[in-house]
Nucleic acid binder design. Structure first.
Lengths: 172, 172
DNA sequence: GCTACAGTTGGCAGAATATGCCAATGAAAA
DNA sequence: TTTTCATTGGCATATTCTGCCAACTGTAGC
């Protein structure tokens, strides 16, 4: 289990696959100035190391009939640890919840919820969210306009083009 | 320009590609119980209709050295429309900003920002965000734990398995 | 300076896949 | 029933995937 170091080519590969996950290995190899064999090997290594967690199609939410995105701030009663775990597990299992983070600040959790319309959200809020274990307060912020979405991670911000810039641990 | 209607097979295709964008067309065809030819044709149609906006690799943020995610609420002075546009364009151009929405509620905009660490965020906040045009207030909520991320859109919540459920317009 | 060595690369070949074309199928309209 | 139209499945060819092996590069040790 060697600990992993990303060189410039690895970052180039990650950036390219982040932009277009359906690149052919031949295309990818050409983009990063490598022949297909070592390119594929690097991709497999990045996958095995857990740096690439998956490949996903990005869908048009409005187009598939999911027109409403809501950012939901939730406060929970922090008395029991078991209750907090129950809350987390419940949230993970909800298909309408696209992402959920424990955050600092006013709310304890920040959820991104995707539903068809306001009626569906009302149903989800009163029928599901408000009944989750330990919830003490919910604040719903509706997305009125999407300015930017699914932006790529800023890999360019890591380090220059140095040889072996950054030690990276394998999956914890 | 035929307006688009999703049937059960289309939704199945979308769900599968959302889960794993590197599925082979042969695998995808088998999963949706179609032969490769019509399967590929449907995928191409879904892409052309704009329902599939792209395919992206999901990276491990910590693994690539981007260990800090911050949700940033921003209030802007709403006096000039031109100023609001300038703000939007500036935000879109920032690589650290992974997503940005105009939202209802306390803040006007909600940004998701990804940086290496707290020092990088301090630099980004004081050197970039606070200097954006029209910003009047900024509230930073740090992600302490990621409970769920990149959850698939809940296509199952759309309609039953009816024939031609839902009219969908082409790209606006 | 020279040798041994570890890691990486590039090329090759067989298997699998992508993709355009055409006939066949099935359902709705006349 | 017949016509029409959209969709499907199969086929052939070009491209790609992927494991294997030899060559190369840079480093450490002698």
């Amino acid at each position: 289990m060697p600990s992993y170091r990303l060189d410039a080519i690895d970052r180039h590969i990650l950036a390219a696959l982040q932009r277009d996950a359906r690149l052919t290995n031949v295309q990818l190899a050409e983009e990063v100035s490598l022949s297909p064999s070592p390119c594929l090997r690097r991709v497999r290594q990045l996958e095995a190391a857990g740096l690439i967690r998956g490949y996903h199609a990005e869908l048009d939410r409005g187009g598939v009939g999911l027109g409403l995105t809501v950012f939901v701030g939730i406060k929970v009663e922090r008395h029991h640890e078991a209750q907090a775990n129950a809350f987390r597990e419940a949230v993970v299992a909800l298909p309408e919840v696209v992402s959920a983070h424990l955050v600092s600040g006013e709310s304890d959790f920040l959820l991104q919820v995707v539903v068809a319309d306001l009626a569906a959200y009302e149903c989800f809020l009163t029928g599901t969210l408000l009944r989750l274990p330990g919830v003490s307060d919910i604040r719903s912020n509706f997305a009125i306009q999407t300015v930017k979405e699914h932006g790529p991670l800023p890999l360019g911000r890591l380090e220059g083009e140095g040889r072996e810039p950054m030690p990276v641990a394998r999956r914890p």
